[in-house]
């Protein structure tokens, strides 16, 4: 029962700090999470978070492990592919990037996107907004993350069915005038 947190290639320190706040960890435990894995990208934890969770870990570490309130916490910056961590996870919390959204939705797992409310005019969230309106994922800001974890809709998300690209391909073949090779 792992919770996987990813910020992709963005800088989103509010999210990684907020996930490890006392309130969030407590709520994650309530829904049955036993371990937390974070992909933190370029950002760094705040000093207070580091002291509280990791004890004596240096300021700008690239990876680390700890046991905090009976939960295994682990973090790293980047990996060539995070799909392994995603498919192992029980709950996914991510930034609102399109790639992350689509990958998480394909796995059909409880999924929360956290919008960076400090970015002005963040058009990257257009897709996440729409998917949240349609009930495929939960959307929140760092401040409301703890409440979203306990939101009962998290476990009743509607599966997202992506469009069938083979039909598009068929349409294009027709336009060009070639036939599919058997």
């Amino acid at each position: 029962m792992a919770c996987f947190v990813t910020v992709g290639t963005t800088l989103f320190e509010d999210l990684i700090n907020q996930v490890l706040s006392e309130k969030c960890v407590e709520n994650l435990k309530k829904v049955g999470v036993k371990s937390i894995k974070l992909q933190i990208g370029k950002g760094n934890f705040e000093k207070s978070t580091l002291d509280r969770v990791f004890g004596e870990l240096a300021d700008k570490s690239d990876q680390g492990k700890a046991n905090y309130q009976g939960i295994n916490v682990e973090f790293y910056r980047f990996k060539p592919s995070i799909s392994g961590d995603m498919s192992e996870a029980f709950i996914i919390i991510g930034h609102a990037g399109a790639g992350t959204c689509l990958e998480a939705l394909a796995l059909q797992k409880p999924f929360i996107t956290v919008t960076n409310d400090k970015l002005m005019d963040n058009h990257q969230t257009e897709l996440a907004d729409k998917l949240s309106d349609d009930g495929h994922l939960l959307q929140c800001t760092p401040m409301t993350l703890a409440d979203s974890i306990l939101n009962e809709n998290l476990f009743k998300l509607r599966p997202f069915k992506p469009a069938a690209k083979n039909l598009v391909a068929e349409h294009i073949r027709e336009l060009v005038g070639v036939q599919k090779l058997q």
Binding site: A98, K165, V168, A169, R173, V178, Q179, L181
Partner: peptide, 17 residues
């Protein structure tokens, strides 16, 4: 980035035609 991923997703449906 994402544009490339989407494009290859579509191209994967084509074969030697």
């Amino acid at each position: 980035g994402g544009h490339t991923t989407e494009m290859l997703e579509l191209i994967k449906n084509f074969d030697n035609e």
